[in-house]
């Protein structure tokens, strides 16, 4: 099976500060993968390493089964949309398209032209005068028109207003449906991921807290509500991810391959948002015991 991104013990240091440490993960190809994590989790660093903008300080990373920095032919296989959709403010839309054509042997001029037309972009407009949404759409067009096998999008909608965000994700989903390209999309907002992704990777402090097919993950996790109960007395196959207790009531998020049959529990499905947050908290708490020391002692 081809892996979109595969990392083994990858770390990246800026001066003395490690932005990513010992990251090991496998992101499958052929999916629309949401890479989720709190700010500073190392998402951007990981994606920059994947597209070859950065070199790892430790470990190895490969993209589509090839070294991330194995040359221009590898660059052509990846369409990268960096955070905030960088474009040349002084070049026009048409000049950006020309750039894509001049710099990529695999460039699909017809696709680019039709996308610019469908988006209603004025080819003679300078990119610096476009709205954030238009910029993002132009940048996405550039990334897709080079006909990559993998689209890597770093926080593509973080800076967009709700309408532009919806339009952008709509465009992305159309492209995925028509072109069948693999996508890895990072975001710190679950709503975006929930809308477009079918595979989830939760990254906390450079470590994978949760990974898996979205439908499978949702089927695997349950929210249990019932009378107050010590989690130590839960059955072994029910892994407690998160617990909260109020007076006489306990709410748990558990991971279980088998159905929950205990009648004391009121079992409801979890949302992807709940799930990601639960794993983020769990990873954060286990990663930094010193910060929670007081709370645990109380």
């Amino acid at each position: 099976m081809t892996m979109a991104i595969e990392a083994f013990g990858v770390g990246r240091r800026y001066g003395r500060r490690w932005a990513l440490t010992d990251c090991t993960l496998s992101i499958p190809a052929g999916r629309v993968v949401g890479l989720v994590g709190p700010n500073g989790a190392g998402k951007s660093t990981l994606l920059h390493l994947a597209v070859g903008l950065l070199e790892p300080s430790a470990g190895t990373i490969s993209v589509l089964d090839q070294g991330a920095r194995s040359g221009p032919s590898q660059l052509e296989r990846i369409g990268f949309l960096a955070q905030d959709s960088p474009i040349y403010a002084r070049l026009t839309v048409a000049q950006h398209v020309r750039m894509g054509q001049l710099l990529n042997r695999t460039w699909d001029a017809a696709f680019a032209a039709s996308r610019i037309k469908n988006l209603g972009l004025d080819p003679s407009q300078r990119a610096g005068t476009m709205s954030g949404g238009q910029r993002a759409q132009l940048a996405l067009t550039l990334a897709v028109a080079k006909r990559p096998e993998l689209l890597v999008l770093d926080e593509p909608v973080a800076a967009l207003d709700p309408l532009a965000r919806r339009e952008f994700l709509q465009t992305l989903m159309e492209i995925v449906a028509v072109e069948g390209v693999s996508v890895v999309l990072s975001s710190h907002l679950m709503a975006d991921v929930e809308r477009v992704c079918d595979y989830l990777v939760v990254l906390v402090a450079g470590r994978v807290a949760l990974t898996g097919d979205v439908d499978e993950l949702l089927a695997l996790h349950h929210r249990l509500t019932g009378p107050r109960r010590d989690v130590a007395r839960m059955p072994a196959h029910q892994l407690v991810i998160e617990q909260s207790h109020v007076d006489k009531q306990t709410t748990l998020i558990v991971r279980s391959q088998e159905p929950i049959l205990d009648p004391v529990w009121n079992v409801t499905p979890v949302t992807l948002d709940d799930l990601a947050l639960a794993y983020m908290r769990q990873a954060r708490d286990s990663a930094g015991p010193s910060s929670n020391g007081l709370e645990l002692a109380r």
Binding site: H48, V51, L53, E76, P86, I87, L103, T106, L142
Partner: peptide, 17 residues
């Protein structure tokens, strides 16, 4: 400074070139 290196250096032309 403007971040366009992320656009420029991820096209199908190596950074050295």
């Amino acid at each position: 400074e403007t971040g366009t290196y992320r656009l420029a250096w991820t096209q199908g032309v190596s950074r050295s070139r």
